[in-house]
């Protein structure tokens, strides 16, 4: 069992592929709020899965100049096909090799399922976790907690 990294912790650095030929490193995003949305798997068979919902809500996140990224243990090709199918307009990172390594370091890996839990982190401009949340199994957490945390960082228009 892992423990959800709490608010106040420096977010562990990672470098993960976002596409077959691109990688994202967390430290590149300093200066902006970052939302990390860990989720179990691509391809939930519904039209309003968690990632789909965040996709629809992107304009709300943009008001804060926040970068949102989904993270699951699916590989880059699954992410690419999933993102294309659902018309997702934000990056999905592949915590694929070593499998679940980043999820473990954030305390949100399920050994039993071999997947990430459904968990959210809001990082401030310096990469410090300011809010984290582990969702109850089967309940899509929505975005109200994320927006409340972004509100507390100071509304939008942060210095870049």
């Amino acid at each position: 069992m892992y423990r959800l990294l709490p608010a106040g912790t420096q977010a562990p650095e990672f470098i993960l592929p976002s596409t077959p030929d691109q990688k994202v490193s967390l430290s590149e995003l300093r200066g902006r709020p970052v939302v990390l949305a860990f989720y179990p798997a691509d391809w939930s068979p519904v039209c309003s899965d968690q990632m789909g919902m965040y996709n629809e809500m992107l304009p709300e996140f943009e008001k804060y100049d926040a970068e949102i990224m989904g993270i699951s243990v699916d590989g880059v090709w699954s992410h690419a096909a999933f993102a294309r199918d659902r018309k997702l307009h934000f990056p999905l990172l592949a915590d694929f090799e070593p499998k679940g390594d980043v999820s473990r370091r954030y305390g949100v890996y399920s050994d039993r399922e071999g997947e990430s839990e459904r968990a959210l982190f809001v990082l401030d401009q310096r990469g410090v976790i300011r809010w984290s949340y582990l969702s109850a199994t089967g309940i899509n957490p929505g975005a109200n907690g994320i927006l409340a945390a972004l509100d507390r960082l100071g509304k939008g228009k942060t210095s870049k």
């Binding site: 968690q50 919902m53 927006l147």
Partner: peptide, 13 residues
């Protein structure tokens, strides 16, 4: 927006 703020997590909520 009011729905996002209120925790809408799919449709219908």
């Amino acid at each position: 927006s009011s729905g996002v703020r209120s925790g809408v997590n799919g449709t219908p909520t």
